[in-house]
Design a protein around this nucleic acid. Structure first.
Lengths: 158, 158
DNA sequence: GCTTGAAACTTCAAGCTTGAAATAAATTCC
DNA sequence: GGAATTTATTTCAAGCTTGAAGTTTCAAGC
């Protein structure tokens, strides 16, 4: 009893859906864990951590719009998070000479310190959570993920 | 110049972190896409869709607590989403005979219809988004994801 | 110069999310 | 049977998130 091409396509579609659900379960599970750890160990949240990580990678700061496109979140969103980080003394806004519309967000020295200590732990957490993956597994998975990502950019939304 | 064991461990840790960031980018990218499509095509949201999918898989309904543990979200969260689905006539609450504390959430017939039409499209979207993965790739990736997930459950949070 | 349009942000309302506190009902333990 | 505990759920405040609408500033075209 061999299947025809149509049936095989349907099987493949179902398999892709199952894989998607599994990937979702994986990343959401890890994210939930990270959220809890960030809260319990550092009294912060994942969005704050993400913004600080972005700013840490760009020591000269990022414009608000660069920040939101880098993190793939809305403009209004980063406004709020940077507001709170600023209130807490972890970030600050600098005006851009020559463009009075723009603002550059930067970490304060204390923000930098805070982030560095969190980042070290963060890496250790991920290391533990993914410890069942060896060097080869990592390469395999990263390659496949990259293949999907490469397409994603070019995919126009119908 | 061979590296010692310590240096290799560090490389591996960094590689795991990079993989994690890539997986995150992948799932978040797809999720963003799904959100937009659900909104534009069906005027709904991903959380609503997730709840409806869970209820669709359990035609006899789920207790609120079962629903929240199934979806891995907080109790209070599903209360709100089921409230809104109920307001929209897509779900309803049934009291459990013999336990006046509990409530069972179910899809209404209209909820079921609505979900079925969304689900068909949803599968097609995923199929397109993951179309670069063939049968073998899917198996590989699913197996690796499963390996991490298997551990995740047993991992006690320190 | 002036107007028109684009760009950079912020504000806003609505909904999602969480963890903690509150309520109510069932169960367990004397 | 009554007290203490556990279980099921809702409520609540705070924060995250989005898309849309609004403000201010810059850039182009005339």
């Amino acid at each position: 009893m061999t299947k025809n091409a149509r049936a095989l396509e349907e099987d493949l579609s179902k398999a892709r859906l199952r894989l998607w659900l599994r990937l979702l379960k994986l990343t959401q599970g890890i994210e939930t864990d990270l959220r809890r750890k960030l809260r319990e160990h550092h009294g912060t949240t994942l969005p704050r951590f993400d913004v600080m990580a972005a700013l840490a990678r760009h020591p000269d700061g990022l414009k608000m719009s660069e920040l939101s496109s880098y993190l793939k979140v809305s403009n209004g969103n980063v406004t709020g998070i940077v507001d709170r980080l600023t209130q807490e003394g972890l970030a600050l806004r600098i005006s851009v000479p020559g463009d009075r519309r723009a603002q550059i967000a930067r970490l304060t020295p204390r923000g930098r310190e805070t982030f560095d200590s969190m980042a070290a732990e963060h890496e250790a957490w991920i290391d533990t959570l993914l410890s069942d993956l060896g060097s080869e597994d990592i390469t395999t998975m990263a390659t496949l993920a990259e293949r999907v990502l490469a397409k994603e950019g070019t995919y126009e939304h119908p």
